[in-house]
Design a protein around this nucleic acid. Sequence first.
DNA 1: TCCCATGTTGCTAA
DNA 2: GTTAGCAACATGGG
Length: 258
Amino acid sequence: MPELPEVETLCRQLGKAIVGKILIKTQSLDEKLYHFSELEQHKVTSVSRRGKNLLLFFDDGRVLTVHLRMTGRLLWQKENGDPPKYTRFIMTFSHGRIFFIDPRRFMTLTWERTFPAQCGPEPFPHLDPAYLSDRGKNRKSPVKSFLLDQATIAGIGNIYACEILHLAGIAPMRPVCSIDGQQWQRLLSAIDDVLNKAVHCRGTSISDWRDFHGQKGTFQNELHVYGRDGLPCLRCGAAVVRGSIGGRGTYFCPGCQT
DNA sequence: TCCCATGTTGCTAA
DNA sequence: GTTAGCAACATGGG
């Protein structure tokens, strides 16, 4: 579910709600995971994002790294009341609670002195123009797999990879090493445009994504290819095709992505 | 019933 | 060393 724009949205909202506040209590509603009573009575000093990881820094120097995987959500609630269905973990502050909701239970929480980051550079808000083409110059793998590789770039997922390649006019199965200079420029600028716009839209609510306050994002209204197989391309009118690359559903326009 | 799913990891084989 | 493919994780929705 959550890719960079969704995690960035949560990061900003969470920062406003809990930085400087003391975590009073934690509760695990999933016996399989999450026994973090050591977090209690510590103050949150800052909140940041690394790729799709959300990082909560505490005043004892440790970091809680939250990865939402496919269906994880965080929801802030000021009032008392029952936790929503699929709530797996609860953090209680003096002024509200955070529900960690995850139907599929893939979400991971790790509590360490350092955060795990075998992540490549951040594409948001900007990426070094020379980096991508240099890293990709000898690679034969499909450019879409390259974009999804978190060690290459941190934070791009399946929806935004499809949208970025469509905006750049590049077919997703193209070998990375076949991308020419002008196409690298288009790719860079498409990464920049798509991610910045998606952050501005507070993410893509295609099925169940909601932000920290339960609101839908609006980028689902801006999608040009993702989920549009059989429908006309919004740029050239050809029918959008759904294929598979690296085992992931891949939407592209055979008319204007070459 | 079958297939799909916004993610990651680990294994196998080419 | 690369790379592609696939199962696994666990569950809901169409």
